[in-house]
Design a protein around this nucleic acid. Sequence first.
RNA 1: GCGCCGGUAGCUCAGUGGACAGAGCAUCGGAUUUCUAAUCCGACGGUCGCAGGUUCGAGUCCUGCCCGGCGUGCCA
Length: 579
Amino acid sequence: MIEIKKQIADSLAEHLPAESENIENLLQIPPEPEMGDYALPCFVFAKKLKKSPAKIAEKLAENLSKPDGINEFHAEGPYLNISVDRPRMYSKLLGSIVKTGKEVFSNDSGKGKTVVIDYSSPNIAKHLAVHHLRSAIIGRSLYNIFQACGYHCIGINHLGDWGTSFGKLIAAFERYSDVSPQDADVSDLQNLYVRFSKESEENPELEDLGRRKFKELENGDPEATKLWKQFKKISIEEFKKIYELLGIEFDAYTPESFYLSLAEDLLNRLRAKDIAMESENAVIADLEEQDMPPLMLQKNDGTTLYATRDLCAAEYRWINYRFEHCIYVVGGEQKLHFRQLKTVLKKMGYDWSDRIEHIDFGLLKLRDPKTGKASVGSTRKGDMILLEDVLKNGIERAKEKLNENIEKLSDDADLDKLAARIGIGAVMFSDLAVKRNKDVVFDWDRMLDFHGDTGPYVQYAHARLCSILRKAGVDVRPNADCALLKLPEEWKLVRLIEIYPSRIMQAAEKREPSIIANYLLNLCKLFSSYYSLGMKEPEKRVICEDQHVLGARLMLVEATKNVIAHGLELLGMNAPERM
RNA sequence: GCGCCGGUAGCUCAGUGGACAGAGCAUCGGAUUUCUAAUCCGACGGUCGCAGGUUCGAGUCCUGCCCGGCGUGCCA
């Protein structure tokens, strides 16, 4: 996409004690369009030039020669406001979007670099619940965002299929289950686990039994292994159904158990380097010098812990992918774990340990209807809201709405598919629109709302844009004249579209999909206002008498549509053409 | 106790150290012979947790405190 700011920054750099790139970052868009198209705040130069910001702005306005494409410099207090040749610059901008399509928004800042992203990574033998949503969709969205920045992405589902809890599950199965492993489903497994947890509260010996069973499993006991394999198979089958609904994919399913064979060698090396040592019959990595509690790597019964397997996984990923970034999309409650992990890797002498990044997010809490207090749901107690139920509810609600407006759809519309795109879109968007590290209290109504700042609102704007393009009945040409876009709303739209690529960069840098979601809301709000003008004043409609104005407006509509479609894609959502 | 995260309108949240702190929901009032009303327009609503400090300028940075959450060796 053409970069107007860059051009301006280049010409300003010759007259200021700063690099062009810094000036580009400094350039803003003035609050009112009458002030100009860009503004350079001059505060930062005051010290170096020993003049007041206002004076600097004034001097610059007087002395700068006007490069090609720039119409005017004028000082307004401490700001140097800049007006460009709007018709030329912005016709070019919109034209390039129409000509090239959505790819124009991508950049190549990550070209030749690999980013490994670990997301979703649920534990097996449990249903996916609402709180599993965040890692999955934030992770997948980051995958899409990095891809749009030219990175080679590896999406990994680091399935939680190993650990003491599976020893407990095996014990529970042997103790209570009346179904054969072949006939069991995830609900059976989860119920067994809950029952076992409850009983062990009164009968602590069961905890030991669970640990013993895990030891058997880790030692390769054939019976235990057979059960575990079956549990895993059942779980993955169910997970895949939900992933399909969510449109989430992975490049690799490499579960925790995959790294078990590497653990012994790792522990030996850690001991040899004096990073790991015996303590209370267990093996720990002491991190006191780093002001952290020790990281436990082997329990007193000789079995491994997730930290052990995570270290192996990190090494494995480095050897196989040579990543620029290795991102773990995991809840904030595991912050300490990842700090410890990085520190141990650093102690091992790996300079790539700096590339390990824990991208944390806030907890999802459930509100207790009685006390009104929000707290984290517990699988052990069985109080959780199934992800599938939430998605199904969303789909149902969308279907009702679609049936009300059935005449708006095409004859061959696939109602179920469309309802899924919208209903699930609502759920995903409600989560993606909030900044990662905020805790979220689950709320059916908010998650399934289709009005206001929601996913369906964005999708609806897209459908309207598509409708205009269909009804216009002419091709959108990339060479229309932007000078014909005279309404303030049109102008604001152009300016908002202009900054879209920079939002993608920001979203990638901050690992923050909500930047895209909030940007889309602003864009759609603006478009909807613009669109509504045409209700009372037909001459303000896109499809209008004047063919030249029509051409310019269609270019704007097409560009807006492309931005929305692209943005929704980055969020992992669909952009229906009718709804 | 210590560490980390959060505290902005009644509720849910935006807000690269910069021009007047913004949305959505809720409430109230308006707009539909439509380029799709899943929409739009208006009204109402603020000690940006508190107190200092840095700065030409602080919701944003620093320090202390208050409130809430999470974590803190045999779970993941």
